[in-house]
Simulated assay, not measured.
Amino acid sequence: MEQSNFIKYIQKYFTGFVALVTKTINGSKDPLKYRYKTMLTPKQSIDGKWTSITADNVNVAADVVAMDSPLPLKTRPAIASASGDIPKLGMEMKMNENQLDQLDTLIAKGADISEILTELFDDSKRGLVGVEEQTEYLFLRGLSSGIALTDTENVGTGVRVNYGYLDANKAGVAVVWSNVANSTPITDVNEMIAKASDAGETVSYIMMDKLSFNYARRSVEGKDLYATSIGNFGTTKPTPTYKQFLEVWQDETGLQFDIVDRSVKFEKDGVKKTIKAWDEGKVILLTDNNVGDLVWKKVVEDSHRSAAVTYVNGDLGTLVSKYVTHKPFGEWTDVQARRVPVVNGVDQIFQLDTKIVQA
């Protein structure tokens, strides 16, 4: 392992390039939306562990007590927790001889510095975005299903983080939503809102995948809801557009809707595959849009750096490194991070499964 042959460019531009990529990922210029950035609070872990806390924080009314009488004893909130190790996320990329030869040619021809840096640092950008994509996938899969996992598509060690969603806060439906002729999605969601209210919670947000939303839009109840909103009381009810139905359903429930249509690309054994991040058919109702923490820790190599490797730190302990090897020969880029999305307060999260008929 040796220093990169392009060390002068790396020393001068690498830190700024990583900072720019991180800023772009976090800002509005990037077309990809990362919900975990707005729905989770970054939290650094010292011991490399994550913990999800659930408290039975149900408020009860004070008693009316006669003067000179003792105050009645009430129970304190019951607290439960789940915990585990923070996994490492990462990827490694190699520039082979042909690619390095092309980069040498760009430099020899006096190409614009931006073109040279784009070619030299492209792997760093892909690695940084790759960490963000995996984080988003884990978050959306975990929030929708209650279990963040990478068992099937992950190349390395599988991750399985069970948030312990409460059975009391879960429900199925009268008729699966894919059966648009007979399903009752409006009623199902209203019953879930009532279920939350009975548990002492007021939900303000609802999230579902686009397929489930479209099933609801095409259902008889969905058409009826829209028709009523426009004063159509006849026998022919048109199917509302996506925008029309979203507006009328939000007005009906008073909830803020978030329709998730997010895919993440994975590569395993050289084969790329696109996976939907949201667990299909799940509808999640929330009392708050901030649902937990993004727990992170510095990777081990950050504290044990090699003199032959050039390092730059990204966001939340992400470590980017570049170096050269001769057997096999190549310019290598590694991107590592230790982080895991953790959903807290699962007593305030309600899950409706539109693919399961409620017994």
Rank of each mutant, 00 (worst) to 15 (best):
V335A: 01
V155A: 14
N232K: 01
E301W: 01
L128W: 01
Q44E: 12
V189D: 03
R338L: 06
F350N: 01
D302I: 08
I284Q: 01
S124Q: 14
I116V: 15
I10R: 13
D122G: 06
N154A: 13
G48N: 11
G314E: 04
K88T: 13
L352P: 00
Q102L: 13
G254M: 03
L352V: 15
D353E: 12
S4N: 11
F121L: 14
T51D: 09
V175E: 02
S303C: 04
E331L: 05
S81A: 09
T241K: 07
V60M: 14
D224I: 05
S197K: 14
A199G: 04
E97L: 02
P42Y: 11
G270E: 09
M95I: 03
G200Y: 11
L32G: 08
N290I: 13
I275F: 14
E191F: 08
A308H: 07
T75D: 10
T318V: 15
F213W: 05
K170L: 08
V220W: 01
W296Q: 08
A194Y: 13
S124T: 10
T354K: 03
K12H: 10
G345Q: 01
G158S: 07
K273I: 05
P328I: 09
L143E: 08
D353R: 07
A277D: 04
E280W: 01
P42Q: 15
Q336C: 02
D122C: 07
S212W: 00
F329L: 08
L32Y: 09
L140W: 11
Q250H: 05
D258R: 14
L40H: 15
I46D: 15
Y34R: 08
A78V: 03
N59S: 10
N289A: 13
H326I: 04
A66F: 14
T354W: 01
N162P: 05
V180S: 03
L100F: 02
K8F: 11
M95T: 01
K282P: 01
L138P: 08
I349R: 00
A277N: 02
I259M: 09
T135G: 09
V175G: 00
K297G: 09
K74Q: 07
W177H: 03
G317C: 06
V357Y: 03
V129K: 14
T236S: 12
N313I: 06
D269Q: 12
A307Q: 12
A216D: 04
N344M: 09
S263I: 06
T75K: 12
S4P: 11
T184P: 03
L149Q: 09
D347F: 01
A194W: 07
S4L: 08
N26A: 09
Y163W: 07
K355R: 10
G84F: 08
M192D: 04
M67D: 08
R160T: 15
E221M: 06
D334A: 06
K88C: 15
N26P: 03
Q348R: 08
R126H: 08
V18H: 07
E97I: 05
T235E: 12
G254H: 05
L140K: 10
T187N: 12
L294W: 06
G164L: 06
K125T: 10
Y34T: 04
V309R: 06
Q336F: 04
Q250M: 10
I186S: 00
T287V: 10
S52K: 05
I53D: 00
Y163S: 03
Q351C: 02
